[in-house]
């Protein structure tokens, strides 16, 4: 395989509340390759968004800080990069789209103003040139009537249209890497498919690398090349998408897959994983999933498992068992 575009190693991010620091991202490592979609899945509160914000250098300061690890991008480490240089990377080399398009655009400025401001931040072009670039970016995400939209304000656009604007903004400077944090979660089901389609089309056309954060396993199965499953701030299993879905090894991955409703095969109650993700201040010693795991051993309660590579897969479990049909 080619060398990775972005290499995250042992990334650890802590949040401070009332003087005590808690790890919300704990030693996360993954690689992103050109022209590839890496899916990052897990329940709410497992650290997916914090991982993405850490890569972008956008974690809320001073409440949170990166306590260790590195994010290697080309020959630079983004974690130790001065803020001034990091700003050059953001929006240009690596861009991000967020979950809620309704609140993600400044309500006081027109769409055209917001887009051209970011363009002119990174490229020394005239205002008309920047406007032409913005217009083209809006047309590429198939926003209807882009000329009119340029002079409109966010409140005049629907949620789906605003998310297209967000995508246009993220893609207009041709980034190497796009981080999409639950890009369709806040949208209507019918619009979700359209937005995802636009996003994928652009990713393929540009040969871009994409980190797709979602809790929707259906989306991941359909579009991702590789999948990393996060639990309690750590990656517990990582594998190519086919392998992960056909032969999940980690009990948490298995639980997630069983929890997907399958209308054709099953009747009766939906499978759930008992309990919930532990809050960062109450992560149990040993394997953090052990309290919810049906196959936990005594060792799982006492010893913290490492992420072990095995035949293209990375797994963090002492007692993996093949998935038995439910």
């Amino acid at each position: 395989m080619a060398s990775p575009l972005l290499s995250v190693r042992d990334l650890t991010t802590v949040i401070r509340t009332e003087g005590i620091e808690f790890e919300v991202v704990r030693g996360v490592s993954f690689d992103m390759y050109p022209n590839e979609i890496l899916g990052l899945v897990g329940e709410s509160g497992c650290g997916k968004t914090m991982t993405a914000l850490s890569v972008m250098g956008l974690i809320p300061s001073p409440a949170a800080r990166i306590a260790g690890g590195e994010v290697r991008f080309g020959d630079r480490d983004l974690v130790s990069l001065p803020e001034r240089e990091m700003r050059e990377v953001r929006g240009d080399d690596i861009s991000m789209i967020f979950q809620d398009p309704l609140t993600s655009l400044d309500p006081m400025f027109s769409i055209g103003h917001l887009l051209t401001e970011v363009i002119r931040r990174h490229r020394s072009v005239s205002r008309p040139e920047a406007e032409a670039m913005a217009l083209q970016a809006l047309a590429e995400v198939e926003l209807p009537d882009p000329e009119t939209r340029m002079s409109q304000y966010p409140h005049q656009l629907s949620g789906g249209m605003r998310q297209r604007v967000m995508i246009a903004m993220a893609l207009m400077l041709d980034p190497d890497i796009l981080i999409a944090d639950e890009p369709t979660t806040a949208l209507d089901v019918t619009v979700q498919a359209q937005i995802l389609d636009r996003l994928l089309g652009q990713q393929r056309r540009r040969g871009m690398s994409m980190l797709l954060i979602t809790h929707d396993l259906g989306v991941v199965a359909a579009v991702a090349d590789r999948v990393a499953v996060m639990y309690s701030g750590e990656i517990v299993e990582q594998a190519p998408v086919g392998q992960l879905f056909s032969d999940p090894q980690h009990p948490y991955t298995q639980g997630l897959l069983r929890a997907v409703p399958q209308t054709r095969h099953q009747r009766g109650a939906l499978h759930t994983i008992p309990g919930r993700v532990p809050p960062p201040q109450f992560v149990p010693p040993g394997c953090p999933f052990s309290p919810r795991c049906s196959q936990a051993l005594v060792r799982c309660w006492e010893e913290h498992p490492e992420l072990v590579p095995d035949d293209g897969r990375h797994l963090r479990c002492f007692n993996p068992r093949p998935l038995t049909p439910a």
């Binding site: 972008m56 700003r87 990377v89 993600s104 655009l105 970011v118 990174h122």
Partner: peptide, 14 residues
Amino acid sequence: DSDWVRTLRAGGLS
């Protein structure tokens, strides 16, 4: 604290 502040920062604005 608004979401759009994060968007602008993600766009590289100072």
